[in-house]
């Protein structure tokens, strides 16, 4: 062993750590021959002694009892809230926020957001009336071949929401709402499960999707869900769409795209 290789084990020797017998014997043999390394080991041992003295000297936590009191109070508060113990907190939350609960909360959020839009555009009296009239409608379960609702939403998405590569002429998802109005006025037929559109009771005509946010998050289509609602017909005016005044009291169907956070991202109207 030479000085350089001794350096790799000198800390362990000084700290009296367990070493391989062969390494230790070689190190000790070198230390007998090399005065510099002997002195180096003396420094390391002196440092260990100094650190040991420091370790034994550290004062106790004089506030330990006060902290304990505060922690015990917090512990009692927490266990009394959970009823059972600390571990129950997270399970309780997961039980409460089942998928159905999240869907219901999202629906309420959407209706509330429309009420706010109405309030801003038409005034408080009318908005309150329309809010009471708004009622979420659950869509009947689609046939098994249609897949889940997220897939339907993806299939039905109009071009403004589809990202394409640079070669395909990309279109910004952040276009302003006004740019969507023109497209929104052009009705389009919704395909049925097979992709065709035969005449039948399920035939519907819909506008294009119109963004409800600034466009951020619209690219995450995989995470979106579509919910159908019935809304006061006057909501059409909020989006710059024509409305028959004689049918103002009736409701209009709308499909709303919801992000994973429950925030409505886009809406289209269906007839």
């Amino acid at each position: 062993m030479n000085c350089r290789s001794l350096e790799t084990v000198i800390t362990e020797i000084a700290r009296e750590q367990i070493l391989e017998a062969q390494s230790k014997a070689a190190a000790l043999a070198h230390l007998h021959e090399c005065r510099a390394c002997t002195a180096r080991l003396a420094d390391e041992r002196a440092l260990s002694a100094g650190l040991g003295t420091m370790a034994r000297s550290v004062a106790e936590n004089v506030s330990a009892q006060r902290i304990e009191g505060a922690l015990v109070s917090a512990f009692r508060q927490r266990t009394s809230v959970n009823g059972i113990g600390l571990a129950s907190g997270r399970r309780t939350i997961s039980r409460i926020w089942s998928p159905w609960s999240i869907a219901a909360a999202a629906t309420i959020l959407v209706v509330a957001s429309f009420a706010v839009i109405e309030f801003v555009l038409t005034g408080p009296g009318k908005s309150a009336q329309q809010l009471s009239a708004a009622r979420p409608v659950v869509i009947p379960s689609p046939p098994a071949s249609q897949g889940n609702i997220a897939e339907i939403a993806r299939e039905d998405l109009p071009a403004p929401f589809v990202q394409t590569g640079p070669s395909g002429g990309s279109r910004s998802l952040d276009r302003g709402r006004s740019q969507f109005h023109e497209a929104a006025l052009k009705p389009r037929s919704l395909p049925n499960a097979s992709g065709s559109n035969p005449a039948g009771v399920h035939d519907e005509i819909a506008t294009d999707f119109m963004p409800l946010t600034d466009g951020a998050g619209l690219s995450q289509l995989d995470d979106m869900q579509m919910v159908r609602l019935e809304l006061p017909r006057s909501v059409l005016q909020s989006f710059g769409l024509p409305m028959n005044a004689e049918r103002a009291g009736q409701r209009v169907k709308a499909d709303v795209l919801l992000g994973q956070d429950g925030v409505a991202r886009a809406i289209r109207f269906v007839r």
Binding site: E68, F75, T79, G85, L86
Partner: peptide, 15 residues
């Protein structure tokens, strides 16, 4: 034990 709400266990662990 602490997870189950045992205050003594929590205090023992703390001390």
């Amino acid at each position: 034990l602490m997870l189950g709400g045992d205050e003594n266990a929590f205090v023992s662990l703390y001390r």
